[in-house]
Nucleic acid binder design. Structure first.
Lengths: 244, 244
DNA sequence: AAGTGGTCTAGACCACAAC
DNA sequence: TTGTGGTCTAGACCACTTA
Protein backbone atom coordinates (compact mmCIF):
# COMPACT_ATOMS: atom_id res chain seq x y z
CA UNK A 1 0.00 0.00 0.00
CA UNK A 2 1.83 3.07 -1.23
CA UNK A 3 -0.81 5.59 -0.39
CA UNK A 4 -3.63 5.33 2.08
CA UNK A 5 -7.00 4.29 0.80
CA UNK A 6 -8.83 7.11 2.54
CA UNK A 7 -6.55 9.62 0.81
CA UNK A 8 -7.28 8.06 -2.55
CA UNK A 9 -10.98 8.26 -1.85
CA UNK A 10 -10.59 11.87 -0.73
CA UNK A 11 -8.70 12.67 -3.92
CA UNK A 12 -11.34 11.02 -6.06
CA UNK A 13 -14.16 12.88 -4.34
CA UNK A 14 -12.21 16.11 -4.65
CA UNK A 15 -11.76 15.58 -8.36
CA UNK A 16 -15.44 14.84 -8.81
CA UNK A 17 -16.39 17.97 -6.94
CA UNK A 18 -14.02 20.07 -9.05
CA UNK A 19 -15.36 18.62 -12.25
CA UNK A 20 -18.89 19.44 -11.27
CA UNK A 21 -19.99 15.86 -10.74
CA UNK A 22 -21.10 16.93 -7.28
CA UNK A 23 -22.15 20.58 -7.69
CA UNK A 24 -22.05 23.13 -4.87
CA UNK A 25 -25.19 22.97 -2.76
CA UNK A 26 -25.78 19.31 -3.52
CA UNK A 27 -25.18 16.52 -1.08
CA UNK A 28 -22.63 13.78 -1.51
CA UNK A 29 -23.91 10.20 -1.38
CA UNK A 30 -24.44 9.03 2.17
CA UNK A 31 -21.58 7.47 4.07
CA UNK A 32 -22.92 3.91 3.79
CA UNK A 33 -23.44 4.48 0.06
CA UNK A 34 -19.87 5.74 -0.35
CA UNK A 35 -18.58 2.79 1.68
CA UNK A 36 -20.20 0.44 -0.78
CA UNK A 37 -19.11 2.49 -3.76
CA UNK A 38 -15.47 2.40 -2.71
CA UNK A 39 -15.60 -1.08 -1.15
CA UNK A 40 -14.45 0.22 2.19
CA UNK A 41 -15.67 0.53 5.72
CA UNK A 42 -17.65 3.54 6.81
CA UNK A 43 -14.87 4.72 9.13
CA UNK A 44 -12.51 4.89 6.17
CA UNK A 45 -15.08 6.96 4.27
CA UNK A 46 -15.34 9.25 7.26
CA UNK A 47 -11.58 9.78 7.28
CA UNK A 48 -11.76 10.71 3.61
CA UNK A 49 -14.59 13.14 4.28
CA UNK A 50 -12.57 14.72 7.08
CA UNK A 51 -9.95 15.55 4.49
CA UNK A 52 -12.59 17.32 2.41
CA UNK A 53 -13.75 19.19 5.49
CA UNK A 54 -10.18 20.30 6.16
CA UNK A 55 -9.95 21.42 2.56
CA UNK A 56 -13.17 23.40 3.00
CA UNK A 57 -14.89 21.47 0.23
CA UNK A 58 -17.82 20.12 2.21
CA UNK A 59 -19.77 20.86 5.34
CA UNK A 60 -21.51 18.04 7.19
CA UNK A 61 -25.03 18.46 8.53
CA UNK A 62 -26.18 15.89 11.01
CA UNK A 63 -29.23 13.96 9.87
CA UNK A 64 -28.98 15.36 6.37
CA UNK A 65 -25.67 14.70 4.71
CA UNK A 66 -22.44 16.23 3.43
CA UNK A 67 -23.09 19.42 1.48
CA UNK A 68 -20.66 20.54 -1.21
CA UNK A 69 -19.50 24.10 -0.55
CA UNK A 70 -19.09 26.81 -3.13
CA UNK A 71 -15.57 26.35 -4.42
CA UNK A 72 -15.41 29.81 -5.96
CA UNK A 73 -15.27 31.45 -2.59
CA UNK A 74 -11.84 30.02 -1.93
CA UNK A 75 -9.51 31.70 -4.31
CA UNK A 76 -6.34 32.14 -2.37
CA UNK A 77 -5.43 29.23 -0.12
CA UNK A 78 -3.16 30.75 2.48
CA UNK A 79 -4.11 29.18 5.76
CA UNK A 80 -1.93 26.45 4.40
CA UNK A 81 1.76 26.97 4.05
CA UNK A 82 1.87 28.18 0.51
CA UNK A 83 4.85 29.31 -1.47
CA UNK A 84 5.07 31.82 -4.23
CA UNK A 85 5.68 29.21 -6.90
CA UNK A 86 2.75 27.13 -5.79
CA UNK A 87 0.54 30.17 -5.91
CA UNK A 88 1.89 31.03 -9.28
CA UNK A 89 0.85 27.65 -10.59
CA UNK A 90 -2.59 27.61 -9.05
CA UNK A 91 -3.41 31.20 -9.92
CA UNK A 92 -1.80 31.13 -13.34
CA UNK A 93 -0.15 34.48 -12.81
CA UNK A 94 2.50 35.81 -15.07
CA UNK A 95 5.21 35.86 -12.45
CA UNK A 96 8.98 36.07 -12.27
CA UNK A 97 11.57 35.69 -9.54
CA UNK A 98 14.79 37.65 -9.28
CA UNK A 99 17.49 36.54 -6.84
CA UNK A 100 18.89 39.64 -5.17
CA UNK A 101 21.16 37.90 -2.69
CA UNK A 102 22.42 34.39 -1.92
CA UNK A 103 25.04 34.07 0.78
CA UNK A 104 25.99 32.59 4.13
CA UNK A 105 24.56 34.56 7.00
CA UNK A 106 23.60 33.70 10.56
CA UNK A 107 20.04 33.81 11.75
CA UNK A 108 19.08 37.11 13.37
CA UNK A 109 20.21 36.98 16.99
CA UNK A 110 16.75 37.55 18.41
CA UNK A 111 15.36 34.56 16.55
CA UNK A 112 18.25 32.27 17.36
CA UNK A 113 18.03 33.26 21.00
CA UNK A 114 14.30 32.78 21.26
CA UNK A 115 14.58 29.33 19.77
CA UNK A 116 17.59 28.45 21.90
CA UNK A 117 19.55 27.34 18.84
CA UNK A 118 23.04 26.00 19.23
CA UNK A 119 24.09 26.67 15.66
CA UNK A 120 22.67 29.77 13.91
CA UNK A 121 24.62 29.16 10.67
CA UNK A 122 22.26 29.62 7.74
CA UNK A 123 21.99 30.40 4.07
CA UNK A 124 20.40 33.75 3.30
CA UNK A 125 18.34 34.27 0.16
CA UNK A 126 16.67 37.52 -0.84
CA UNK A 127 14.29 37.34 -3.79
CA UNK A 128 12.13 39.86 -5.59
CA UNK A 129 8.86 38.59 -6.99
CA UNK A 130 7.05 40.33 -9.79
CA UNK A 131 3.70 39.70 -11.42
CA UNK A 132 2.98 41.24 -14.81
CA UNK A 133 6.29 43.15 -14.39
CA UNK A 134 5.04 44.81 -11.22
CA UNK A 135 7.11 44.19 -8.09
CA UNK A 136 4.90 42.53 -5.50
CA UNK A 137 6.96 41.11 -2.71
CA UNK A 138 10.50 40.65 -1.43
CA UNK A 139 11.23 37.40 0.38
CA UNK A 140 14.13 36.92 2.75
CA UNK A 141 14.85 33.35 3.77
CA UNK A 142 17.24 32.04 6.38
CA UNK A 143 17.69 28.29 5.93
CA UNK A 144 19.69 26.38 8.55
CA UNK A 145 22.90 24.92 7.10
CA UNK A 146 22.45 21.94 9.37
CA UNK A 147 19.70 20.76 7.02
CA UNK A 148 20.54 22.47 3.74
CA UNK A 149 24.29 22.76 3.16
CA UNK A 150 24.02 24.59 -0.17
CA UNK A 151 21.55 26.33 -2.45
CA UNK A 152 22.22 27.17 -6.08
CA UNK A 153 20.95 30.24 -7.82
CA UNK A 154 18.80 28.06 -10.05
CA UNK A 155 17.11 26.46 -7.09
CA UNK A 156 16.48 29.87 -5.55
CA UNK A 157 15.00 31.05 -8.83
CA UNK A 158 12.48 28.23 -9.07
CA UNK A 159 11.15 26.80 -5.83
CA UNK A 160 13.11 26.29 -2.65
CA UNK A 161 10.40 24.09 -1.25
CA UNK A 162 10.34 21.62 -4.07
CA UNK A 163 14.15 21.40 -3.70
CA UNK A 164 13.82 20.81 0.04
CA UNK A 165 11.04 18.27 -0.24
CA UNK A 166 11.78 16.42 -3.43
CA UNK A 167 15.58 16.42 -3.50
CA UNK A 168 16.58 16.67 0.13
CA UNK A 169 13.55 14.72 1.38
CA UNK A 170 12.97 17.17 4.18
CA UNK A 171 9.50 16.79 5.58
CA UNK A 172 7.99 20.12 6.50
CA UNK A 173 5.31 19.77 9.11
CA UNK A 174 4.12 23.16 10.26
CA UNK A 175 4.85 26.85 10.50
CA UNK A 176 3.86 29.87 12.50
CA UNK A 177 3.15 33.11 10.68
CA UNK A 178 2.62 36.66 11.80
CA UNK A 179 1.30 39.48 9.67
CA UNK A 180 2.06 43.08 10.55
CA UNK A 181 2.40 46.45 8.83
CA UNK A 182 5.74 48.17 9.29
CA UNK A 183 7.96 50.83 7.75
CA UNK A 184 10.78 49.63 5.47
CA UNK A 185 14.16 51.06 4.58
CA UNK A 186 14.73 52.90 1.32
CA UNK A 187 16.38 50.07 -0.52
CA UNK A 188 13.37 47.84 -0.07
CA UNK A 189 10.99 50.70 -0.77
CA UNK A 190 12.72 51.39 -4.06
CA UNK A 191 12.68 47.75 -5.15
CA UNK A 192 8.97 47.50 -4.40
CA UNK A 193 8.18 50.85 -6.09
CA UNK A 194 6.60 52.15 -2.92
CA UNK A 195 5.29 55.67 -3.29
CA UNK A 196 3.46 56.26 -0.08
CA UNK A 197 5.26 56.56 3.20
CA UNK A 198 7.29 53.43 3.16
CA UNK A 199 4.89 50.96 4.71
CA UNK A 200 4.93 47.29 3.75
CA UNK A 201 3.06 44.24 4.94
CA UNK A 202 5.44 41.92 6.76
CA UNK A 203 4.75 38.20 6.87
CA UNK A 204 7.21 36.39 9.12
CA UNK A 205 7.30 32.61 9.23
CA UNK A 206 9.06 30.06 11.37
CA UNK A 207 9.06 26.66 9.70
CA UNK A 208 9.51 23.31 11.41
CA UNK A 209 10.17 19.77 10.25
CA UNK A 210 8.23 16.65 11.12
CA UNK A 211 10.53 15.85 14.01
CA UNK A 212 9.65 19.31 15.35
CA UNK A 213 13.11 20.77 14.76
CA UNK A 214 13.30 24.37 13.59
CA UNK A 215 14.36 24.71 9.99
CA UNK A 216 13.77 28.08 8.33
CA UNK A 217 12.93 31.69 9.04
CA UNK A 218 11.31 33.80 6.36
CA UNK A 219 10.37 37.46 6.12
CA UNK A 220 8.15 38.52 3.24
CA UNK A 221 7.63 42.20 2.57
CA UNK A 222 4.56 42.90 0.45
CA UNK A 223 3.44 46.03 -1.29
CA UNK A 224 0.38 47.09 0.73
CA UNK A 225 -1.73 47.81 -2.32
CA UNK A 226 -0.99 44.36 -3.74
CA UNK A 227 -1.33 42.36 -0.58
CA UNK A 228 -4.27 40.08 -0.03
CA UNK A 229 -4.55 37.28 2.47
CA UNK A 230 -7.54 34.97 2.36
CA UNK A 231 -8.32 32.62 5.18
CA UNK A 232 -10.96 30.04 5.88
CA UNK A 233 -11.75 29.39 9.51
CA UNK A 234 -13.92 26.87 11.25
CA UNK A 235 -15.26 27.81 14.63
CA UNK A 236 -14.50 25.47 17.49
CA UNK A 237 -17.54 24.68 19.55
CA UNK A 238 -17.58 26.81 22.65
CA UNK A 239 -18.58 24.14 25.12
CA UNK A 240 -16.88 20.95 24.13
CA UNK A 241 -14.10 22.35 22.02
CA UNK A 242 -10.53 22.79 23.02
CA UNK A 243 -9.40 26.17 24.17
CA UNK A 244 -5.84 27.19 23.60
CA UNK B 1 -23.71 10.57 26.49
CA UNK B 2 -23.71 14.33 26.70
CA UNK B 3 -20.25 14.89 25.35
CA UNK B 4 -18.12 12.58 23.28
CA UNK B 5 -15.59 10.47 25.07
CA UNK B 6 -12.79 11.42 22.73
CA UNK B 7 -13.42 15.10 23.45
CA UNK B 8 -13.28 14.46 27.18
CA UNK B 9 -10.00 12.63 26.74
CA UNK B 10 -8.70 15.47 24.58
CA UNK B 11 -9.70 18.00 27.21
CA UNK B 12 -8.04 15.98 29.93
CA UNK B 13 -4.80 15.66 27.98
CA UNK B 14 -4.93 19.36 27.15
CA UNK B 15 -5.29 20.24 30.82
CA UNK B 16 -2.41 17.99 31.74
CA UNK B 17 -0.21 19.58 29.10
CA UNK B 18 -1.12 23.08 30.30
CA UNK B 19 -0.38 22.17 33.89
CA UNK B 20 3.02 20.86 32.98
CA UNK B 21 2.23 17.23 33.63
CA UNK B 22 3.44 16.56 30.10
CA UNK B 23 6.14 19.20 29.47
CA UNK B 24 7.03 20.51 26.03
CA UNK B 25 9.52 18.24 24.30
CA UNK B 26 8.35 15.16 26.18
CA UNK B 27 6.29 12.41 24.63
CA UNK B 28 2.79 11.49 25.67
CA UNK B 29 2.17 7.89 26.73
CA UNK B 30 1.79 5.62 23.72
CA UNK B 31 -1.61 5.13 22.16
CA UNK B 32 -2.12 1.63 23.59
CA UNK B 33 -1.11 2.95 27.01
CA UNK B 34 -3.57 5.83 26.74
CA UNK B 35 -6.27 3.44 25.60
CA UNK B 36 -5.81 1.42 28.74
CA UNK B 37 -5.53 4.53 30.91
CA UNK B 38 -8.83 5.89 29.64
CA UNK B 39 -10.52 2.50 29.20
CA UNK B 40 -11.15 3.11 25.54
CA UNK B 41 -10.21 1.73 22.18
CA UNK B 42 -7.13 2.95 20.39
CA UNK B 43 -9.17 4.58 17.63
CA UNK B 44 -10.91 6.73 20.21
CA UNK B 45 -7.55 7.76 21.61
CA UNK B 46 -6.45 8.64 18.10
CA UNK B 47 -9.47 10.88 17.64
CA UNK B 48 -8.59 12.64 20.87
CA UNK B 49 -4.99 13.09 19.72
CA UNK B 50 -6.22 14.52 16.43
CA UNK B 51 -7.90 17.25 18.44
CA UNK B 52 -4.60 18.06 20.10
CA UNK B 53 -2.93 18.15 16.70
CA UNK B 54 -5.57 20.57 15.43
CA UNK B 55 -4.97 22.67 18.51
CA UNK B 56 -1.23 22.63 17.77
CA UNK B 57 -0.45 21.05 21.12
CA UNK B 58 1.32 17.95 19.86
CA UNK B 59 3.13 16.67 16.80
CA UNK B 60 3.18 12.98 16.02
CA UNK B 61 6.33 11.23 14.88
CA UNK B 62 5.93 7.79 13.42
CA UNK B 63 7.75 5.09 15.30
CA UNK B 64 8.47 7.41 18.21
CA UNK B 65 5.39 8.95 19.70
CA UNK B 66 3.41 12.15 20.21
CA UNK B 67 5.66 15.05 21.17
CA UNK B 68 4.28 17.93 23.19
CA UNK B 69 4.91 21.23 21.41
CA UNK B 70 6.06 24.46 23.00
CA UNK B 71 2.84 26.16 23.94
CA UNK B 72 4.46 29.57 24.29
CA UNK B 73 4.91 29.90 20.58
CA UNK B 74 1.17 30.15 20.08
CA UNK B 75 0.05 33.34 21.68
CA UNK B 76 -2.63 34.64 19.41
CA UNK B 77 -4.99 32.00 18.05
CA UNK B 78 -6.49 33.61 14.99
CA UNK B 79 -6.74 30.90 12.43
CA UNK B 80 -9.86 30.20 14.38
CA UNK B 81 -12.78 32.55 14.23
CA UNK B 82 -11.97 34.73 17.17
CA UNK B 83 -13.83 37.74 18.42
CA UNK B 84 -12.57 40.80 20.17
CA UNK B 85 -14.12 39.86 23.51
CA UNK B 86 -12.67 36.38 23.39
CA UNK B 87 -9.26 37.81 22.65
CA UNK B 88 -9.72 40.27 25.45
CA UNK B 89 -10.30 37.42 27.87
CA UNK B 90 -7.46 35.26 26.71
CA UNK B 91 -4.97 38.06 26.41
CA UNK B 92 -6.10 39.90 29.52
CA UNK B 93 -6.01 43.24 27.78
CA UNK B 94 -7.51 46.34 29.29
CA UNK B 95 -10.09 46.87 26.57
CA UNK B 96 -13.30 48.79 26.05
CA UNK B 97 -16.00 48.82 23.40
CA UNK B 98 -17.93 51.90 22.26
CA UNK B 99 -21.03 51.47 20.13
CA UNK B 100 -20.94 54.14 17.42
CA UNK B 101 -24.00 53.00 15.49
CA UNK B 102 -26.81 50.48 15.83
CA UNK B 103 -29.52 50.60 13.17
CA UNK B 104 -31.35 48.76 10.44
CA UNK B 105 -29.42 48.76 7.20
CA UNK B 106 -29.33 46.48 4.20
CA UNK B 107 -26.26 44.48 3.32
CA UNK B 108 -24.00 46.20 0.81
CA UNK B 109 -25.40 45.48 -2.66
CA UNK B 110 -22.23 43.84 -3.91
CA UNK B 111 -22.23 41.32 -1.08
CA UNK B 112 -25.94 40.55 -1.33
CA UNK B 113 -25.61 40.10 -5.05
CA UNK B 114 -22.58 37.86 -4.87
CA UNK B 115 -24.31 35.63 -2.34
CA UNK B 116 -27.57 35.64 -4.30
CA UNK B 117 -29.53 36.65 -1.21
CA UNK B 118 -33.27 37.11 -1.43
CA UNK B 119 -33.54 39.30 1.65
CA UNK B 120 -30.67 41.71 2.40
CA UNK B 121 -32.37 43.18 5.50
CA UNK B 122 -29.82 43.39 8.29
CA UNK B 123 -28.87 45.09 11.52
CA UNK B 124 -25.84 47.32 11.27
CA UNK B 125 -23.49 47.78 14.21
CA UNK B 126 -20.38 49.95 14.23
CA UNK B 127 -18.12 49.62 17.23
CA UNK B 128 -14.87 51.23 18.27
CA UNK B 129 -12.49 49.07 20.26
CA UNK B 130 -9.83 50.55 22.49
CA UNK B 131 -7.04 48.96 24.48
CA UNK B 132 -5.39 50.96 27.24
CA UNK B 133 -7.41 53.98 25.99
CA UNK B 134 -5.83 53.71 22.54
CA UNK B 135 -8.22 53.19 19.63
CA UNK B 136 -7.30 49.94 17.92
CA UNK B 137 -10.03 48.85 15.58
CA UNK B 138 -13.46 49.76 14.23
CA UNK B 139 -15.80 46.86 13.53
CA UNK B 140 -18.78 47.10 11.23
CA UNK B 141 -21.20 44.19 11.39
CA UNK B 142 -24.16 43.40 9.18
CA UNK B 143 -26.27 40.69 10.80
CA UNK B 144 -29.16 39.24 8.79
CA UNK B 145 -32.53 40.04 10.39
CA UNK B 146 -33.73 36.66 9.27
CA UNK B 147 -31.68 35.13 12.06
CA UNK B 148 -31.32 37.98 14.53
CA UNK B 149 -34.41 40.19 14.67
CA UNK B 150 -33.00 42.63 17.23
CA UNK B 151 -29.80 43.62 19.00
CA UNK B 152 -29.67 45.79 22.11
CA UNK B 153 -26.93 48.27 22.84
CA UNK B 154 -25.88 46.18 25.83
CA UNK B 155 -25.42 43.10 23.68
CA UNK B 156 -23.41 45.11 21.18
CA UNK B 157 -21.25 46.42 23.98
CA UNK B 158 -20.35 43.00 25.34
CA UNK B 159 -20.17 40.15 22.86
CA UNK B 160 -22.41 39.64 19.87
CA UNK B 161 -21.19 36.09 19.48
CA UNK B 162 -22.07 34.95 22.97
CA UNK B 163 -25.52 36.45 22.38
CA UNK B 164 -25.86 34.60 19.07
CA UNK B 165 -24.60 31.30 20.38
CA UNK B 166 -25.83 31.14 23.94
CA UNK B 167 -29.14 32.98 23.71
CA UNK B 168 -30.24 32.50 20.14
CA UNK B 169 -28.63 29.06 19.82
CA UNK B 170 -27.21 29.91 16.43
CA UNK B 171 -24.47 27.51 15.47
CA UNK B 172 -21.66 29.20 13.64
CA UNK B 173 -19.70 26.80 11.50
CA UNK B 174 -17.17 28.66 9.43
CA UNK B 175 -16.11 31.95 7.93
CA UNK B 176 -14.00 33.31 5.12
CA UNK B 177 -11.67 36.19 5.84
CA UNK B 178 -9.63 38.49 3.68
CA UNK B 179 -6.93 40.83 4.90
CA UNK B 180 -5.96 43.85 2.84
CA UNK B 181 -4.49 47.31 3.33
CA UNK B 182 -6.64 50.18 2.06
CA UNK B 183 -7.19 53.92 2.49
CA UNK B 184 -10.02 55.00 4.78
CA UNK B 185 -12.23 58.09 4.89
CA UNK B 186 -11.54 60.92 7.29
CA UNK B 187 -14.20 60.01 9.82
CA UNK B 188 -12.66 56.59 10.39
CA UNK B 189 -9.16 58.01 10.31
CA UNK B 190 -10.04 60.44 13.03
CA UNK B 191 -11.65 57.83 15.25
CA UNK B 192 -8.59 55.60 14.92
CA UNK B 193 -6.16 58.51 15.48
CA UNK B 194 -4.45 57.78 12.21
CA UNK B 195 -1.59 60.14 11.49
CA UNK B 196 -0.01 58.73 8.44
CA UNK B 197 -1.74 58.82 5.12
CA UNK B 198 -4.97 57.19 6.03
CA UNK B 199 -4.18 53.52 5.56
CA UNK B 200 -5.87 50.85 7.64
CA UNK B 201 -5.79 47.07 7.67
CA UNK B 202 -9.15 45.73 6.52
CA UNK B 203 -10.32 42.33 7.66
CA UNK B 204 -13.54 41.31 5.95
CA UNK B 205 -15.42 38.22 7.06
CA UNK B 206 -18.37 36.30 5.74
CA UNK B 207 -19.81 34.05 8.44
CA UNK B 208 -21.94 30.97 7.87
CA UNK B 209 -24.08 28.75 10.08
CA UNK B 210 -23.90 24.99 10.42
CA UNK B 211 -26.56 24.50 7.76
CA UNK B 212 -24.28 26.50 5.43
CA UNK B 213 -26.60 29.52 5.27
CA UNK B 214 -24.95 32.94 5.19
CA UNK B 215 -25.40 34.86 8.38
CA UNK B 216 -23.15 37.88 8.90
CA UNK B 217 -20.78 40.23 7.11
CA UNK B 218 -18.10 42.04 9.06
CA UNK B 219 -15.54 44.66 8.17
CA UNK B 220 -12.84 45.39 10.72
CA UNK B 221 -10.56 48.36 10.19
CA UNK B 222 -7.36 48.15 12.20
CA UNK B 223 -4.73 50.74 12.93
CA UNK B 224 -1.75 49.48 10.93
CA UNK B 225 0.71 50.01 13.77
CA UNK B 226 -1.47 47.99 16.15
CA UNK B 227 -2.39 45.18 13.83
CA UNK B 228 -0.97 41.72 14.32
CA UNK B 229 -2.27 38.50 12.90
CA UNK B 230 -0.78 35.19 14.00
CA UNK B 231 -1.42 31.99 12.16
CA UNK B 232 -0.39 28.40 12.58
CA UNK B 233 -0.32 26.29 9.44
CA UNK B 234 0.27 22.63 8.79
CA UNK B 235 1.66 21.69 5.44
CA UNK B 236 -0.34 19.28 3.37
CA UNK B 237 1.78 16.58 1.84
CA UNK B 238 2.60 17.45 -1.73
CA UNK B 239 2.05 14.02 -3.23
CA UNK B 240 -0.93 12.49 -1.49
CA UNK B 241 -2.47 15.57 0.00
CA UNK B 242 -5.36 17.50 -1.32
CA UNK B 243 -4.74 20.55 -3.39
CA UNK B 244 -7.30 23.30 -3.37
C1' DA C 1 -40.23 4.90 10.81
C1' DA C 2 -36.32 5.30 7.92
C1' DG C 3 -32.15 7.49 6.71
C1' DT C 4 -28.44 10.40 7.98
C1' DG C 5 -24.11 11.54 10.40
C1' DG C 6 -21.57 10.93 15.32
C1' DT C 7 -19.37 7.81 18.19
C1' DC C 8 -17.18 3.61 19.91
C1' DT C 9 -15.18 -1.01 19.92
C1' DA C 10 -11.82 -5.04 19.37
C1' DG C 11 -9.10 -6.76 16.56
C1' DA C 12 -5.83 -6.86 12.58
C1' DC C 13 -1.80 -5.76 9.55
C1' DC C 14 1.62 -2.44 8.12
C1' DA C 15 5.81 0.93 8.17
C1' DC C 16 9.07 3.18 10.86
C1' DA C 17 12.40 3.83 14.90
C1' DA C 18 15.22 2.14 18.46
C1' DC C 19 17.72 -1.32 20.66
C1' DT D 1 12.94 -7.87 17.91
C1' DT D 2 9.98 -4.77 20.18
C1' DG D 3 7.30 -0.74 20.46
C1' DT D 4 5.55 3.11 18.11
C1' DG D 5 2.09 5.42 15.15
C1' DG D 6 -0.80 4.68 10.42
C1' DT D 7 -4.46 2.32 8.44
C1' DC D 8 -8.51 -0.60 7.88
C1' DT D 9 -12.50 -3.46 9.07
C1' DA D 10 -17.33 -4.99 10.54
C1' DG D 11 -20.41 -4.23 13.47
C1' DA D 12 -22.91 -1.63 17.03
C1' DC D 13 -25.64 2.11 19.29
C1' DC D 14 -26.95 6.90 19.42
C1' DA D 15 -28.97 11.68 18.02
C1' DC D 16 -30.83 14.26 14.55
C1' DT D 17 -33.78 15.19 10.28
C1' DT D 18 -37.46 14.23 7.36
C1' DA D 19 -41.51 12.20 6.08
Amino acid sequence: MVIAKYLQIAQDLTDKIKHGQYPAGDFLPSEPALAQLYSSSRETIRKALNELIDACLIQKIKGKGSMVLDINRFVFPVSDITTFSELNLSQKMNATTQVLALENRNLPQAIAHQLALTDPAAIFVRRLRTVDSEPIVIDEDYVLKKYVPAITKEQAQTSLYSYFEKELNLEIAYATKTITVEPVDELIAEKLHLQQPNLAVFVRSLTYLKDTSFFQYTVSMHRPDKFKFVDFARRKSAHGGLVL
